[in-house]
């Protein structure tokens, strides 16, 4: 008489598969999850305390990125404009509008506006805007069509893999420095060739060593 019935063989094989397969599947699912927009927080419109609409300021009024984000080519941080920059126009335009009440309050009481950060890299990542901007990476490459966003949302996954991909092959993402802030520039021909020329012109040598970003 057999000690075990035949169907126990299936149970045994299946349980091995389940035992080893479960952690593999679980971990793979987790790893996939963080790469989806749920995990990367892409496409979530972040509501700000003041409804600053980039469509109006950039598309309609034609204000260039660097009018407000002044230090993007000088400093690691692009710079959120100080309230003075807002007031430089809004002391005269819409100076009594209730939508701008908070701006005026912030300016006159000297208390900062609490914006909510959209593009948030972990603290152990030291990203430097100035080098990217000075070497031909346009604003729209990473931040998307901000001029069409009612509320700014993160369009890029901002995962390390996404950054490293460009660092390994930057040419398709380069543009002439005059068009850094252009939202609609398209390369005149094959992005690879145009990019390769620009890389040579701007002396682009992307680094992939760890301390480039992690210090």
């Amino acid at each position: 008489m057999a000690l075990f019935n035949r169907w126990t063989n299936t149970v045994s094989r299946l349980s091995v598969v389940v035992l080893f397969g479960t952690p593999v599947v679980l971990i793979s699912l987790l790893m996939l999850w963080v790469r989806t927009p749920y995990g990367t927080k892409q496409y979530r419109e972040v509501l700000q305390p003041i409804q600053f609409d980039h469509r109006h300021h950039v598309s309609d009024e034609g204000i260039e990125c660097r009018y407000c984000h002044t230090t993007v080519d000088k400093s690691p941080s692009a710079g959120i404009p100080s309230t003075t920059v807002c007031m430089s126009c809004h002391a005269q335009i819409w100076s009594k509008s209730p939508y701008l009440q908070m701006v005026r309050e912030a300016y006159f009481t000297d208390r900062p506006i609490q914006w909510r950060r959209v593009h948030n890299l972990p603290d152990y990542v030291y990203f430097n805007h100035s080098i990217h901007v000075n070497k031909g990476v346009g604003c729209v490459t990473c931040h998307g069509r901000v001029d069409e966003m009612p509320a700014v949302n993160q369009v890029a996954p901002l995962t390390m893999g996404w950054c490293v991909e460009c660092h390994r092959h930057p040419e398709p993402n380069l543009r002439p420095l005059e068009y850094i802030t252009s939202m609609t520039w398209k390369p005149n021909g094959d992005p690879e060739t145009v990019g390769a020329e620009l890389a040579k012109k701007y002396n682009v040598h992307t680094r992939t060593s760890c301390t480039t970003c992690h210090r």
Partner: peptide, 15 residues
């Protein structure tokens, strides 16, 4: 949160 300056101090560049 990002707390930008209300009036940017002279010469200062954040970062």
């Amino acid at each position: 949160p990002i707390l930008a300056y209300t009036k940017n101090p002279e010469h200062m560049v954040v970062g």
